[in-house]
Amino acid sequence: MTAPDPVASTPLTARPEVLDFLATRRSRPAKTLTAPAPDRAALTPLLAMALRVPDHGKLEPWRLIVLERGALDRLARLAGQRAEAAGLAPDQAAKGIAQFADSPLCVAVVSVPRDTAKVPEWEQVLSAGAAAAALCNAAQAAGWGACWLTGWPAYERGFLAEGLALAEGERIAGFVHIGTETSLPPDRPRPDPETAIDWRAA
């Protein structure tokens, strides 16, 4: 018999501190993140929190690839090779390379849609996106800086196949970079609820 989940069995109560975090959270730009990053012991519970996302049908249509220093250096070199082969503009190539060369730690969130008529593929893809967002929130709640990026390496199939061994049909939902923030960035303009929300009573 499986032990009950202590979180799931706890009655819901208001958590003002959580609401305050959600109301004020913002991503930390990747260029402001540096070492140290969480070690495996510190990162593992954050990854587990990221996977507690809506997952219709319990399909687990995602997987996580943790990219540590050696892997990041290898991917930076590969990004340079792929950018040169594709003839990318120097500034575009540099961004793709720096995403891995300068990152203290990165988690690739991979969308892995399952072949089933039970759950639409779109809902499975959304679940992978939710995992990326949840990982950013978990990392920041633990005191780390974090941001969710994609960029051209997330869509270049040669890079994904050679660098991350992604199978056909697998896609990158996001590269989540985690580390120590070096500066507090100013907040960016936020959507206006008056124009972004449509209330309908009937």
Rank of each mutant, 00 (worst) to 15 (best):
L67Q: 10
L46H: 10
A42D: 01
A14L: 13
K31L: 15
P38E: 05
A48P: 07
L47K: 06
G57W: 01
V53M: 12
R26G: 09
R82Y: 01
L78N: 08
L75H: 09
D20S: 08
R25W: 00
R28E: 14
P16D: 04
A71G: 10
D55V: 02
A30S: 13
Q81N: 04
P45N: 06
A37E: 07
R52V: 07
P54A: 07
G57K: 02
A41V: 12
A23K: 01
L67E: 05
A71Q: 15
L19P: 03
P45M: 01
A35N: 04
P61V: 13
A35C: 08
L43M: 08
L33R: 00
H56K: 05
A30L: 08
R15A: 09
H56N: 07
A50C: 02
R26K: 06
A14M: 11
P36L: 07
R40G: 11
R52W: 03
L59P: 00
L46S: 11
T24H: 06
G80C: 04
A71M: 14
D55Q: 04
L78K: 12
R52A: 08
A14W: 11
R82G: 02
A76E: 01
L46G: 05
M49K: 15
A35V: 10
K31N: 13
D73N: 12
Q81Y: 00
I65R: 02
L19K: 05
G80F: 03
A41W: 14
D39W: 10
L59V: 00
V53N: 10
L51T: 14
T32L: 15
T24I: 08
F21G: 01
R15W: 03
R28W: 14
A41H: 14
R28D: 15
G57I: 07
V53A: 14
R15D: 12
P16Y: 00
T44C: 03
R26V: 09
R69T: 15
L64G: 10
A83S: 13
E17Y: 05
E60L: 15
G70Q: 12
A14S: 13
A42Q: 01
A37H: 07
P16T: 09
G57T: 08
L64V: 13
G70S: 09
A35R: 04
K58N: 15
A35F: 06
L75R: 09
V18P: 02
D20A: 10
W62L: 13
G80Y: 03
A30H: 06
G57F: 00
T44M: 09
A50G: 06
D55G: 04
E60T: 15
A41P: 04
P29V: 10
R77T: 15
R28S: 14
L59T: 06
P45V: 01
F21A: 06
F21C: 07
D73I: 07
D20W: 03
A42V: 04
G70N: 11
P61D: 01
A37Y: 06
